[in-house]
Design a protein around this nucleic acid. Sequence first.
DNA 1: ATATAAATGAAAATAATTTCTATTTAGTGG
DNA 2: CCACTAAATAGAAATTATTTTCATTTATAT
Lengths: 141, 141
Amino acid sequence: MKYGHYIKMLREANLKVTPKRKAIIRFFLQNRRYFTPGEVWIALKGKFKHLGFPTIYRNLKELEEVGILTRISQPNQKLHYAFCPLGKGKKHHHFVCEKCGRVREVEFCNFKEIAEEIEKKLDCKITSHFIQIGGLCSECK
Amino acid sequence: MKYGHYIKMLREANLKVTPKRKAIIRFFLQNRRYFTPGEVWIALKGKFKHLGFPTIYRNLKELEEVGILTRISQPNQKLHYAFCPLGKGKKHHHFVCEKCGRVREVEFCNFKEIAEEIEKKLDCKITSHFIQIGGLCSECK
DNA sequence: ATATAAATGAAAATAATTTCTATTTAGTGG
DNA sequence: CCACTAAATAGAAATTATTTTCATTTATAT
């Protein structure tokens, strides 16, 4: 999927296609790693005369809700976002390279069997699961 | 495992057995849910004439390093800790009730097969994985 | 009991994130 | 192409979370 597709997603979500949103999408499209809001701000502030923190925070959150970005969980519990080509439609998880920060999608997940066993053992009802895989990507290993 | 066991763990880690540490351990032993540092502070401040935030933060982090507590990941990326009976020795994950916050250990995890498939597909080396399961516990469902 | 290294409190510093509000802008329909 | 309206934005300030600093106190080994 490329650029235009994500612009269409904005429109479908009734989000206006502003220069800053376009810049953010392009930035993540070209850098498939995870970034904090502050890092995104630094990367893009040169492109605009004015660029406020609240704009970055708000847009990252909106793009995450739309399914263009995803949140990445890091030990230093700060906000981190990465591009998410698969969107929210397809259930999937993420592999994060601990060296370069690259993020890749992992579609394969036979969690159903595991879930059933857990439900039986704990007598509970599982409604969600979060999996994040860490390691070294093909370039870093 | 009960109280004394965790006191021993403190000693083995060369952490002094102070009244505040004892109170924190007892608190988590009795409340098997996740709490923010602030919530722990509120719960315990009545028991001490003085109780500072840094003490709470420091001790929660230390107890997590020792393996008595574990960090729980929540959408509002704030710090959350819960009691972790299995410690760091046994690889395991956590089930978190989204209604009452109860945390239970999940020992079962056949992640190895999944990991192998991912490594093949992404040509990567997996070194860690984080899984957190959400749902309703036996009492809440 | 004493010595010593570790733990603590209080205040301040740092940092992250959100709110508020006036202004600007994208998208729409003429 | 222009005008209108709702949404997006900047900038500053507020809020909140977390950490640092350092002087004092305390647990524990001797």
